[in-house]
Amino acid sequence: MSLQFVIDGLLTGSMIGLGAIGVTLTYSILRFSNFAHGDFMAWGTYATLAVVSAIGATFGKVAPIAPLSFGWPLLVALVVGMAFTALLALLLDRVLFSRLRSQGQAIIVVMASFGASMALRSLLEFTFTSRPTYFSRAIQIAMPVGFGIRITPDQIALLLLTAVLVLGVHLLMTRTQTGRAMQALSQNAALARIVGIDVASVVRVTWIIGGALACVAGVMIGILVQIRPFMGFDMLLPMFAAAILGGIGSIPGAVLGGLIIGLAEAGAVQLIGAEWRAAVSFIILMAVLFVRPIGLFGVRER
């Protein structure tokens, strides 16, 4: 088999991993699995697309930054999209999740996220139809880099962006007071309050990080594959599997889990065919649940 699957796998893995960070944070800090997380991705992507179009309408055609397929409008739009997605997550928490959380039944929150997911996704379908769309239709030439591997400039840029973001979040979690407060809340919520941590503000930060990264992951899918209302929902199972494989609550775990699943998917596509791709995350998920349910970097629950 060709080694090309390594690049494909790393790219898919980056998208999954960035999404899984949000999933794992929501799970460990807010204690529920958020089925609407995939739809944050899709909403962020459409928001970014809308801003790109708006910039295009205002400034006319902007030349891409050679050798990439996109120019500064996309970068600006991405930042706006990240802020938008974070706000969307905060809004949904305000009107729905936080109210249900205060009733004390975690699984009701999961169900509400399932309902919200359906509504969000269908709203996208209503507004933009289910037809796929693209940031750019330009075809990029992939450069050979040896061992039969080819890679496009866009792909290199996005891999670097992922690395920077993951490093940034990791440093935030381990080196800052906010990050320590998030760790504290996920380990022992009662004690966190006692030591003076304002739970509401930590929850806000959690949604902001999760939403913003979901948007980046979505835009990556938009650049490298296509934009569809279902793009996020289809990522849900791989993201959950990555978060559980890495160990709930672990940022490096979520990213590593995402890369493993991405590589496995890319390998499976070469070996058995693209149509079975979605089964890969399920098989890995089941294997983890049977063999080591706490995941690679996980710790047993108290």
């Binding site: 959950f240 559980i244 995350s281 049977f290």
Partner: peptide
């Protein structure tokens, strides 16, 4: 059997996966 010894969210995620895989088998 795979999930009931774990937190309830794991069952939710797994059943979600079952539906995805059944859909995949039905299609392919």
């Amino acid at each position: 059997m795979a999930t009931l010894r774990l937190r309830s969210d794991y069952l939710a995620i797994t059943t979600f996966g079952v539906a995805v895989v059944v859909q995949l088998v039905a299609l392919n």
